[in-house]
Design a protein around this nucleic acid. Structure first.
Length: 921
RNA sequence: GCUCGGGUGGUGGAAUAGGUAGACACGCAGGACUUAAAAUCCUGUGGACAGUAAUGUCCGUACGGGUUCGAUUCCCGUCCCGAGCACCA
């Protein structure tokens, strides 16, 4: 019997499916383990070989943990709401529901061929009303809560109202954006609308005016992580800043907890660093400056991390979008300021991004008073100051900040150095080191001492206070699109009202047109009766990250109609032990999910503060493109190594026509009518193609579909080969050149069980020490490698062991049976078949991981006595502790050793065969 | 500009509490089996030099220094590649 992967894989996939082999339930007697993949967005293109990389790794880990006796939750689903499907609907008129269903079907077929051990009973889809009910439910909870910075958690809005009735809002410590203070009496005198407006400033999900990333081409706003370099991540359309009223989530309230929570997570340092950058904590002080425009005097606050440089403040700068612009512009400067503001408005976000460090600005005519020097300092406006960070105004210290320096040089403003010996003739001195000068009471202190000293003085003189700022902004939560979760919100006399929870889910209405309505409103404006009890419903929908923020919780209890996840299920499964996915979600999904989870934790719906204990980022699989070389103005193609003799054009060729860089010339002729009569100049009888690494995409003809590989080599080969390609976390090109080696290995593995005639040759003979040693070395290696995610080196170990057993002609059951278990996470189909051949049914999934016994692998060095005439003979590296005279005897004759250790006493010698490799003196 | 990774044969990659560099695989070359092919198996394969040969010597982990008996691994500097952030005061 040959290794017939096609039959074997078909057989066992249907067996696993019909026997529900991988179905899991709560089993309190067993320890749980939760392995999660980042669920895919089912796009029209289907899966390519890059997608399964992470899924294979997580499947290996899941199967391994199962063999180790864990009750493993390993689910899969689809992140189905999103822009591409909607764009497709606009172009073709095909409803997104339909497109999504088709794409999911295709994804499922492709996934099924790879032999994953998912519990498909728990499959979820974010666009399913029974799922998005809980997305809407969470939104309502956020609407009904506010963040108490005193208790450090979310609390019901009812508490807040009681507090307002007692003391107004002056005592309460909350994350909010309420501009005014009011007393209890004032609160009581507010109209209902006024009260709602105030509460909106405290809710965790709130409707608020804000500057947003507006993408005109997509007709929607986008979150910060959906915009890169001034264009949309999806589609690459320009994005502009616009003030709009949008639903937002008060993620910023959780900034400190999101930062602290990173500490104990087993995530890569680079990923944690990305999140820290995104949260952007900076400690400093807010300082008050008295500002006069000639007629009025105001108190203005700025934020700085360098309070120590206060004596070097020679001007102030305001962001062009700041509300203070009007107040500080004196009448005689109005014209120039307006011209400048007009100029700034003409620039798109992209231009402002790409033209950084361009120095522009205008003087307002107002002056501030430096509270320490008493100097009058001019107040300018410049686009290099951002409205959204700090207070939208800065104190400029040109000597010690490079941006301020360039600005000062351009507009001829004074530069006062504050650090002894620093040279500011050519540039600013930004480093936080040196000794202060020109700084009054700070003179003589080091910068490190001066910073806290300055803040203390500022606080003592009541000119300001310590302050921590975060770059993390609240998440904009509305999208002017159709294909997303509807908001459970209606408007009663302009006041946003929540739907009762009992009316969830609020289902999307079916539409005929998915374009924005003619008056620029979102597509839902086209829906008939988009109302609740006669009141209009919110027409925006939620963004893509809404549905993916808590999906890992839903997997724990996907059938529950009463709650997101039952307390019982949540307490059993707790959190995700291992999360595998791409690094592209570092500042999007992984921040929102952590926020969402922390919010639900505050409300007591989940038992863990952090959702993902360990996270592994798989690398991207790039495409390996192949090229042919056409001689200019001919239809003749020349092989790679001969091309330099001609003038040629490089042309992409479909990688499916190429094997091991050799072109199938007949297939090439058939590929495209243009090449029907192509001629070839061969080298050594074949046409060799050139190659290059590019992104895997249709236009480069380098997309490799896993189905093709499965048909040719089988899923087990594909799984092993993807792992063999290199370290999981590393990005690497897809390259089929080595796949034969893995396939050959599986055939060789098969032949341990069957001879050439297909007879089962497994024997019951007892294994000897040599064979046991091979086995136990492998057990040890597999165990260690899987725990460390070194899947590529395990495969080498398998190959070595199988080669050794083949050489020994070992077909003993006691060796082969554990070997099947060891390989089953990697190549489950062949393992399952051989498991059955050994008479061990029903499933290898119920087996136990073989126990490693170090006794079998131990080297007893007394068996290899020291026979020393210039060389030491030992089998493997080991530590020896010998008596002094023995050591002296050993090193006699080894000149090198003698030289190294002259005059020193040796404590220990480490040896390998034939050589001393370590001498501890 | 800042932060974090990373530079090892023709190729993918092994090996770092410092200790036989190049495991394993691909490719290539030679051989066996075969009428032939496929499949399978065996041998060789970092470079240079010497030798009929077994073998030996030297050079080799981006580059230049340092620590050490010993450095791919640790330290300092330089160059290159990748990722992320980017006027965050």
């Amino acid at each position: 019997m040959e290794y017939n992967f096609f039959e074997i894989e078909k057989k066992w996939q249907s067996f696993w499916s019909s026997h529900k082999t991988f179905k899991v339930d709560i089993e309190p007697s067993k320890p749980k383990f939760y392995v999660l993949d980042m669920f895919p967005y089912p796009s029209g293109a289907g899966l390519h070989v890059g997608h399964p990389l992470g899924y294979i790794a997580s499947d290996i880990y899941s199967r391994f943990k199962r063999l180790k006796g864990f009750n493993v939750l390993h689910p899969m689903g689809y992140d189905a709401f999103g822009l591409p499907t909607e764009q497709y609907a606009i172009q073709t008129g095909q409803p997104p529901e339909q497109t999504t269903a088709n794409n999911i079907k295709r994804y499922r077929e492709q996934l099924d061929k790879l032999g994953f051990s998912y519990d498909w009973e728990r499959e979820i889809c974010t666009c399913d009303p029974s799922y998005y009910k809980w997305t809407q439910w969470a939104f309502l909870k956020m609407f009904h809560h506010w963040y108490n910075t005193d208790s450090g958690k979310a609390e019901p809005v009812e508490n807040l109202i009681k507090e307002f009735e007692r003391h107004g809002n002056s005592k309460i410590k909350a994350a909010h954006h309420c501009p005014d203070l009011f007393s209890a009496e004032e609160w009581k005198s507010f109209t209902e609308k006024e009260k709602e407006d105030v509460l909106m400033c405290y809710r965790i999900a709130y409707l608020g005016e804000t500057s947003v990333n507006w993408c005109p081409a997509l007709g929607t706003v986008l979150a910060n992580d959906e915009v890169k370099e001034g264009v949309s991540v999806r589609g690459g359309y320009p994005v502009v800043q616009k003030k709009m009223k949008q639903w937002q989530l008060r993620v910023s309230a959780y900034a400190e907890r999101l930062l602290e929570g990173l500490e104990d997570l087993a995530w890569s340092d680079s990923l944690k660093e990305m999140q820290r950058n995104w949260i952007g904590k900076s400690e400093g002080a807010e300082m008050e400056f008295s500002v006069s425009n000639g007629s009025d005097t105001f108190s203005m606050t700025v934020f700085t991390t360098r309070a120590d440089t206060i004596f070097g403040v020679t001007f102030m700068v305001l962001a062009p979008e700041s509300d203070w612009v009007e107040k500080l512009t004196v009448p005689e400067r109005k014209k120039q300021v307006q011209e400048y503001l007009d100029y700034v408005k003409t620039k798109t976000e992209r231009e402002r991004m790409t033209q950084t460090h361009r120095v522009t600005g205008v003087f307002t005519g107002s002056y501030a008073l430096n509270p320490f020097t008493g100097n009058q300092i001019p107040f300018w406006i410049s686009e290099y100051v951002l409205a959204g960070y700090g207070t939208g105004a800065i104190m400029a210290v040109p000597a010690h900040d490079s941006r301020d320096y360039i600005f000062a040089k351009t507009y001829d403003l004074p530069i006062v150095p504050l650090i002894e010996g620093c040279d500011v003739s050519m540039g600013s001195f930004d480093a936080k080191e040196g000794v202060m000068c020109n700084s009054g009471f700070l003179n003589g202190l080091s910068v490190q001492e001066a910073i806290p000293a300055a803040i203390e003085e500022v606080e003592r003189r009541k000119l300001g206070h310590r302050k921590i700022n975060y770059r993390l902004r609240d998440a904009i939560f509305s999208r002017q699109r159709y294909w997303g979760e509807p908001f459970p919100i209606y408007y009663q006399n302009e006041i946003p009202r929540p739907l009762p929870e009992t009316s969830l889910p609020l289902k999307l209405p079916g539409l005929y047109s998915f374009k924005p309505s003619s008056n620029g409103e979102p597509p839902l404006a086209n829906a008939k009766n988009w109302t609740y009890e006669g009141y209009p419903l919110e027409k925006s929908t939620m963004p893509g990250f809404a549905g993916s923020s808590a999906y890992y919780l839903r997997y724990m209890d996907p059938w529950n109609t009463e709650c997101l996840v039952s307390e019982q299920a949540n307490h059993y499964w707790q959190d995700v032990d291992l999360y595998i996915g791409g690094t592209e979600h570092a500042t999007g999904h992984l921040i929102y999910s952590r926020f969402w989870n922390k919010f639900l934790y505050d409300l007591g719906f989940v038992c863990k503060d952090e959702p993902f204990k360990k996270l592994v980022n798989q690398g991207m699989i790039q495409g390996r493109s192949n090229f042919v070389y056409r001689i200019k103005n001919t239809n003749t193609f020349v092989s790679l190594n001969l091309k330099d003799n001609y003038e040629t054009t490089e042309i992409h060729v479909d990688v499916n026509l190429v094997q091991n860089d050799r072109l199938d010339t007949e297939a090439f002729r058939a590929w495209n009518p243009e090449y029907k009569n192509a001629e070839f100049i061969l080298e050594e009888g074949t046409y060799i193609c050139g190659w290059g690494i590019e992104k895997m995409s249709k236009s480069m003809f380098n997309v490799v579909n896993p189905d093709t590989i499965c048909a040719q080599y089988g899923a087990d080969t594909l799984r092993m080969y993807e792992m063999f390609l290199g370290p999981l976390e590393q990005s690497k090109p897809w390259d089929t050149n080595g796949i034969d080696g893995v396939h050959r290995f599986l055939k060789k593995f098969w032949r341990l069980f069957f001879d050439n005639n297909g007879s089962n040759i497994v024997s019951n003979e007892k294994p000897d020490a040599k064979e046991l040693k091979i086995l136990h070395n492998l057990i040890h290696k597999v165990e260690e490698d899987i725990e460390h995610f070194s899947f590529n080196t395990t495969i080498s170990a398998f190959m070595i062991s199988v080669n050794k057993l083949t050489d020994l002609d070992c077909h003993k059951k006691d060796i082969l049976e554990p070997l099947v278990v060891l390989i089953s996470p990697y190549a489950p189909h062949i393992a399952e078949e051989l498991w059955a051949q050994l008479g061990r049914i029903p499933s290898v999934a119920n087996a136990n991981f073989p126990v490693f016994d170090p006794e079998f692998t131990k080297e007893n060095f007394y068996e290899y006595p020291v026979s020393f005439n210039g060389k030491l003979r030992f089998k493997r590296s080991m530590d020896l502790t010998l008596k002094k005279e023995e050591i002296e005897k050993l090193i006699q004759g080894d000149e090198r050793t003698l030289k190294y250790t002259e005059g020193k006493s040796i404590k220990k010698i480490i040896v390998v065969p034939g050589k001393i490799i370590n001498i501890v003196v």
